[in-house]
Design a protein around this nucleic acid. Structure first.
Length: 600
DNA sequence: TTAGGGTTAG
């Protein structure tokens, strides 16, 4: 009789213990999930230790995640190293922690350790590894991870594939991003956004808008704020004001206008599309502007030559205790450079480190070289350029900047040196040749011009023609450098330019870029000169309110310098009696490539 | 228990 009773007691006790164990277990997990500060995390850690649960992988994983959430990656690592049997979640959580802590390299190094430990990665692990490659823009490692994804059978996983699309986009391999995207068996708003972003960030804004249109046509989902921010960015990169406004409308309809990131993208888009007043309107509606919103507005104002506005915005930002970053200072220096505020610019350069703890680097010094160069302080600019330690890409920008300034001020000696450095960097080589050639032409050194042109032909260096465009209603009209003279309305345009040139000369214009003075320069150089003309022309059109309520705006390079104001006044007179004003639809597209209505 | 997408520059 006693035996069954004893068994019952034992069962009851076991159940009691098990319930207690389970209750305690969940209690600890709840505590770990709710930890919002390091004190409660340490207390929870201590409870886990006392209860003997530290050897339990599941509980330790919760603790790792708690430290990761609190950005205590070293505590998470210490705990991980003490675990007797970390599983795939332990490894993945720590890797994700390193990514969040800005150490993606450590995440990848950990993934290699994980492979050696024979723990098998899962879809979460792959997504984390791919994210690390994306941040590092490491295409080689990214491809290796992709190969493992295929081998281990995760090619149909939505999150893993979306991460791959993003990674290929960030590594500038858009074709591969598209290939992965096309092969996906199912997609969601994240995968579509990744593809749109891949295009937008790789100078393929038209494809980005095309994908966005497809997303809308398929009625898959509503665009969210992530997607809209990317689409706005694509519009900005294309200078497509109409599309940008349509996107803005969608933002308002979907109630995403209070999102700071979307608003910052809009501020940037309007500035790049020639409507800085809209930028300001959007900016002033942001309730708590971040450093990025301020920087967008500072840069936007700077593009329009409103240097003092940029500086005021900077002061306002500091007064609101918003900490500037390195890019804010690029904007400030750029603003000073384009508004001739050299002393203010040099003062800000000094204050960067002293007041704000940001050490100026090559990009800041490049702005200063530009600032000095524009105002003719070529010698100082040259000495500064020589003293800066730069990587290859940065060097191309630095010497390219100095080259432009030396051409502008006719310093052939410095132009020669800057071109040499630029050609050595193996970037913008054709631009360097053409600019140097023009510097020689300006100085009347025709022998050097011809010898440089021969060298270009011999080495096969070809200068891509630049272009400008205007947007009328819902269509863009493109002017390609070199096209003006050969297009159907070319004679009229050239006539217009000559008239403009004459009028400007009459009013004392002495600059070298507008006049047809380089008639003896060979073909490539002429292309650049004519390109400048067409740009000026487009620029002038952009400032004119055409009758019948049609406004023509210039989408690119809208600079309100003195020359442009002058050009505006003059070309207004000319255009008023030109057929293009009376019948705007006859304003031809000077076709060299495709140009269609790209509104969505 | 762990994972993916967005904004600012020369």
């Amino acid at each position: 009789m006693k035996k069954p009773l004893n068994q019952n007691v034992v069962f009851a006790l076991r159940n009691e213990l098990s319930n207690f164990h389970t209750e305690f277990f969940y209690c600890i997990q709840r505590q770990l999930r709710n930890c919002n500060d390091i004190v409660s995390a340490t207390s929870a850690h201590s409870n886990v230790f006392k209860s003997g649960f530290l050897n339990d992988t599941f509980t330790s994983n919760h603790l790792i995640n708690c430290y990761v959430r609190l950005q205590k990656i070293n505590d998470a690592r210490k705990l991980f190293d003490e675990m007797p049997a970390p599983n795939v979640v332990s490894w993945t959580s720590l890797m994700a922690g390193y990514v969040d802590a800005g150490q993606p390299q450590m995440a990848l190094s950990l993934s290699r350790e994980m492979y050696r430990s024979s723990v098998v990665p899962n879809d979460f692990t792959f997504a984390t590894m791919i994210n690390a490659c994306s941040i590092l823009a490491d295409l080689q490692v990214g491809k290796t991870v992709h190969a493992h994804v295929e081998i281990l059978g995760f090619r149909s996983n939505l999150v893993v594939c979306s991460s791959l699309v993003d990674m290929y986009g960030k590594c500038n391999d858009v074709d591969e991003a598209r290939r992965v995207f096309d092969l996906m068996s199912c997609r969601n708003v994240v995968s579509w956004t990744s593809m749109i972003t891949a295009y937008a960030q790789n100078a393929q804004g038209h494809h980005a808008l095309q994908i966005f249109r497809e997303f809308g046509v398929l009625m898959l989902d509503h665009p969210n704020h992530f997607m809209l921010a990317s689409v706005i960015n694509a519009c900005a990169s294309l200078g497509r004001l109409v599309s940008g406004k349509v996107a803005h409308g969608t933002v308002i309809r979907r109630s995403h206008d209070s999102n700071d990131v979307v608003a910052s993208a809009l501020v940037d888009m309007y500035a790049k599309c020639g409507s800085v007043s809209y930028s300001e309107k959007v900016f002033r509606r942001i309730r708590n502007p971040s450093v990025i919103s301020y920087t967008s507005m500072i840069v936007g104002a700077a593009k329009y030559g409103l240097g003092n506005t940029s500086l005021d915005l900077f002061e306002e930002m500091i007064d609101r205790r918003i900490k500037p970053n390195d890019i804010t200072f690029v904007g400030i220096l750029h603003a000073c450079s384009h508004s001739g505020l050299v002393d203010e610019g040099l003062e800000h350069l000094k204050s960067m480190h002293v007041k704000h703890g940001i050490i100026p680097d090559a990009k800041h010094y490049t702005c200063v070289v530009d600032m000095l160069g524009r105002t003719g302080r070529l010698e100082e600019a040259y000495q500064l350029a020589k003293s800066i330690q730069v990587e290859s890409d940065e060097g191309a920008l630095l010497w390219g900047t100095l080259l432009s300034a030396s051409r502008l001020h006719g310093r052939v000696d410095i132009a020669v040196e800057a071109s040499k450095r630029l050609i050595e960097s193996n970037q913008q080589v054709s631009g360097a040749y053409v600019t140097l050639s023009n510097a020689y032409a300006l100085a009347g050194q025709w022998e050097n011009v011809h010898s440089l042109r021969s060298e270009m032909k011999r080495t096969g260096v070809y200068k891509e023609p630049g272009c400008s465009w205007v947007e009328i209603k819902d269509s863009s009209y493109v002017f390609y450098a070199g096209d003006v003279a050969s297009c159907p309305q070319g004679n009229k345009l050239v006539g217009l330019l000559r008239e403009l040139e004459e009028r400007m000369k009459e009013r004392g214009y002495v600059g070298g870029s507008i006049g047809l003075v380089f008639v003896d320069v060979e073909e490539e150089a002429k292309e650049e000169i004519v390109g400048l003309h067409s740009e000026r022309l487009a620029l002038a059109f952009g400032l004119i309110n055409i009758p019948k309520g049609v406004t023509i705006r210039v989408m690119k390079n809208l600079r309100m310098c003195r020359d442009c104001h002058e050009a505006f006044k003059l070309i207004s007179d000319i255009v008023e009696r030109d057929f293009m004003v009376r019948d705007v639809n006859r304003f031809h597209h000077f076709d060299k490539g495709s140009c269609t209505c790209r509104d969505f």
